[in-house]
């Protein structure tokens, strides 16, 4: 399972990349390309929105908040959660992991605002793997860390993938071949990533006197 979160949507247009290009439309276009390529490679894909307006979490008529998006991602138990953004600044792709300090183990009670801290090491590995794949595809790539909502609340290997134009023309971000190239590099990299991802160890391993959780039972001969 892979979660794709095309940022913004509806009234929230995100940044204005050019006079005719809004961030919310670029993120959705990239998400559609990524979804097709991932499904073709055997992944199940969950998107937080597949139209301009975010998917409604229930029938109450409310739109998705950033926390709702994190909730969708966390329930999916995904091998990777990619928050898709777009910017007019720079070129290529910018990959951001959370700037939380890494937690050595998964706490028994996971705080909502720092859930990602247990997954930082996995996110770093995913970041490096995607950066290498994008570089091989001749896409200029910058890796960094930042605090972008709702990345810190995700309990999965998570990255912000920010797409920038290919050159000084901001509208070059809409180039279908360019977006396809980026999506292909990411999708191919995730195929290898699927076999490497390992969830963080729980902070209190189950004692032999207590019943073990289902994941631990699988390891028992």
């Amino acid at each position: 399972m892979v979660v794709l979160d095309p940022a913004h949507g509806g009234l929230d247009s995100g940044s204005r990349i050019s006079e005719s290009t809004l961030e919310k439309n670029v993120t959705l276009a990239l998400a559609f390309k990524l979804r097709s390529l991932l499904v073709a490679r055997g992944f199940a894909v969950t998107m937080t929105r597949d139209a301009d307006v975010p998917t409604q979490p229930d029938a109450s008529g409310s739109t998705l908040t950033l926390d709702d998006r994190a909730g969708i991602a966390n329930h999916a138990h995904a091998v990777a959660c990619l928050l898709l953004h777009a910017t007019a600044a720079g070129t290529g792709v910018h990959l951001y992991k959370s700037d939380l300090a890494p937690a050595p183990t998964l706490p028994s009670v996971v705080p909502w605002l720092t859930a990602q801290s247990a997954w930082i090491d996995q996110s770093s590995a995913l970041q490096q793997q995607l950066a290498n794949a994008l570089s091989r595809a001749s896409v200029p790539t910058i890796i960094s860390s930042a605090s972008v909502r709702p990345e810190d609340s995700l309990s999965c290997p998570a990255l912000v993938v920010e797409l920038a134009p290919t050159n000084s023309d901001p509208d070059s971000i809409n180039n279908a071949d360019y977006q396809q190239n980026v999506a292909q590099a990411i999708a191919s990299s995730l195929v290898f990533w699927r076999n490497q991802v390992q969830p963080p160890q729980p902070s209190h391993p189950p004692s032999p006197t207590h019943p073990a959780p289902p994941t631990a039972r699988k390891r028992t001969p």
């Binding site: 700037d99 605002l113 960094s144 860390s145 930042a146």
Partner: peptide, 29 residues
């Protein structure tokens, strides 16, 4: 929630944070 749609404004930023130490991976394929 955010400054202009992206950067988290709900967290406390520490002065020792090393966030945004960027590496261009162009040369590191």
């Amino acid at each position: 929630e955010t400054l202009a749609g992206h950067a988290d404004l709900l967290k406390a930023y520490t002065a020792s944070s090393n966030a945004h130490t960027e590496t261009d991976s162009d040369t590191n394929p």
